[in-house]
Nucleic acid binder design. Structure first.
Length: 512
RNA sequence: CGGGGUGUAGCUUAGCUUGGUAGAGCGCCUGGUUUGGGACCAGGAGGUCGCAGGUUCAAAUCCUGUCACCCCGACCA
């Protein structure tokens, strides 16, 4: 671009200017996904799907390591199954897609119309507790059949009003674990264990620090006894739920008839759990780490770790540069990182170096390496880290780069996590007065709200009324009641809204 | 589903008030010069102006209806 007013950042608008628009532009510029012709549904493009695949792989390993196996259950759920659990069906009724016919026929006007009504409508699964419960009821006879520890990778449909790429789409991809246990304690332990898996995954792979805790009753999964969650703060300081784990008690086993004979010969209902994480994680990563030049992918989930850009200014050096680039790629691919070979891409396209660089910047590739004729002579490469500023190119000997590349990737991963943790700490506040609470969550410019607020740790009297009032006034909700840990130990105080006694602080925020 | 807004090329849009052959930038294609952080020159392709109807000699422009999308509310991983 020859314009004198050339933007300094690759993404317009910048985050501070208009965060939602920035997000959409990043998704697009990074070729992660695009809206489809089907309202509310998205096309996940190869780069975005590659990120999801890496998330899947990592989570799958963790699920297997905790004794789970994968299976697959039907997309369609008979309406009568959904109705078995009263709270459950009530919670999901408004967002169910319903299949009522099974055949198309030409009508008199030559248009295809649904022809054969189903005897019983089928609901496209918004989640699978009921259909999986029906199978489990058949599989479980004795305590010897327990526990059942199964996960499925699937798509689900929730007919949402407001779609946002990756964050809230009508159809989305996820995994849902469904387990049955002999005892309440075992099921509760499972619920907590899987939440810990999500927390570890978020930290180690996504470089996302999360709050862990329990949902208040009003935010609980429909039909659950207890819902645990991980909540992250993204760069507009809103909270995003990145994973949930539910203790379902015996609610679903009663409604599905999951019964077994106990060790002492009694009939008992199983104790079930379910837990899930979705493609929303992709959106979380984008909003967590991206900057005004686009995506920044944590190395551990980046589809490509390193892109090598051969610089070929002259035809006579072209072959030598290409050969050197591919040799370097081969050396790097021979390196294993966390059990798999490094993913290296040599961008040989006949395009200007700047164009190529910017493309990979916007896609968030952790490391870019430029290799040109001058480097061949000096044995150097030019390396740029995506998590550092625009112009932080370093020249270093190729052999040194190769020998240190693993450390460098680890450093990027750590840096992203540390940065996110600092950001969250900066915008998390313990608040003890109603005035400060309202001030914290009220933008200065109500016409075009600036990025404001964050996480508030404040006391709560435990009532649903207070939650509803705060939500009505400020659009702020309790994201979680943090677990007991050294940082968030129970602490007596007074409800920030009513002044009534409170045993602990809870986490408040605006949320996605 | 309520309230507001917008539909013109792949994207961003001008033109609409005052009807008269649909323009630009970016992107794309071809050739050449280029290539170490968003290059340049020349040529080229691409638009039923969301859709349907109406008014008119004539509609992107005026009228009616309709659909889609966006923003705000109620719901959500």
């Amino acid at each position: 671009m020859a314009k004198p007013d050339l933007p300094k950042s690759a993404i317009n608008p910048r985050r501070e200017e208009d965060f939602p628009e920035w997000y959409q532009q990043v998704v697009r510029a990074g070729e992660m996904a695009e809206p489809s012709d089907v309202r509310g549904c998205m096309v996940i493009k190869p780069w975005g799907y590659g990120v999801w695949e890496n998330m899947q792989r990592a989570l799958d390993v963790m699920f297997k390591a905790t004794g789970h196996r994968n299976a697959y259950f039907p997309l369609f759920i008979p309406l009568s199954y959904m109705q078995k659990e009263a709270e459950h069906v009530e919670g999901f009724a408004k967002e169910c897609a319903v299949v009522t016919h099974h055949r198309l026929e030409l009508n008199a006007e030559g248009k295809m119309v649904p022809a054969s009504p189903l005897s019983e409508p089928l609901v496209v699964r918004p989640t699978s507790e009921t259909i999986i419960g029906a199978s489990y009821a058949k599989w479980v006879q004795s305590y010897r059949d327990l526990p059942i520890l199964i996960n499925q990778w699937a798509n689900v449909v929730r007919w949402e009003m407001r779609p946002r790429l990756f964050l809230r789409t009508t159809e989305f991809l996820w995994q849902e674990g469904h387990t049955v246990h002999e005892s309440e304690a075992e099921a509760r332990a499972e619920t907590r264990q899987m939440l810990d898996v999500y927390e570890t995954f978020a930290r180690d792979f996504l470089a996302v620090p999360v709050y862990t805790g329990e949902k208040s009753e009003s935010e609980r999964f429909p039909g659950a006894v207890q819902t645990l969650c991980i909540e992250a703060m993204v760069q507009d300081r809103k909270a995003i739920q990145a994973g949930t784990s539910h203790f379902l008690g015996q609610n679903f086993s009663r409604s599905s008839g999951i019964q077994f004979q106990t060790r002492d010969g009694q009939q008992a209902f199983g104790w079930t759990t379910s837990w899930g994480a979705s493609t929303r994680l992709v959106g979380t990563v984008i909003m967590m780490h991206g900057d005004d030049d686009g995506l920044i992918l944590p190395p551990r989930i980046a589809p490509t770790h390193i892109v090598i850009i051969p610089v070929m200014p002259k035809p006579e050096t072209r072959d030598a540069v290409l050969t050197a680039a591919n040799d370097l790629a081969a050396k790097l691919r021979a390196i294993n990182w966390h059990g798999t070979p490094l993913e290296i891409h040599v961008d040989q396209r006949d395009l200007g170096g700047g164009i190529k660089s910017w493309e990979w910047i916007k896609k968030g590739v952790p490391l870019r390496v430029e290799l040109g004729p001058r480097d061949l002579e000096s044995g150097q490469v030019a390396v740029t880290r995506r998590d550092e500023g625009q112009k932080t190119k370093r020249f270093l000997p190729a052999s040194e780069f190769v020998s240190q590349v693993v450390e460098t990737l680890e450093a990027i991963q750590q840096n992203l996590y540390a940065r996110a943790l600092t950001f969250r700490a900066t915008h998390t506040r313990r608040i003890d007065t109603r005035e400060e609470f309202y001030d914290f969550f009220t933008p200065k410019n109500s016409a075009k709200p600036e990025i404001h607020g964050g996480f508030a740790l404040a006391h709560w009297n435990g009532s649903r009324e207070v939650e509803e009032k705060v939500k009505a006034d400020l659009k702020v909700t309790i994201r979680c009641i943090p677990f007991d840990d050294p940082l968030h130990a129970p602490e007596a105080g007074h409800c920030v809204i009513t002044g009534e006694p409170s045993k602990r602080r809870v986490l408040w925020a605006k949320s996605y």
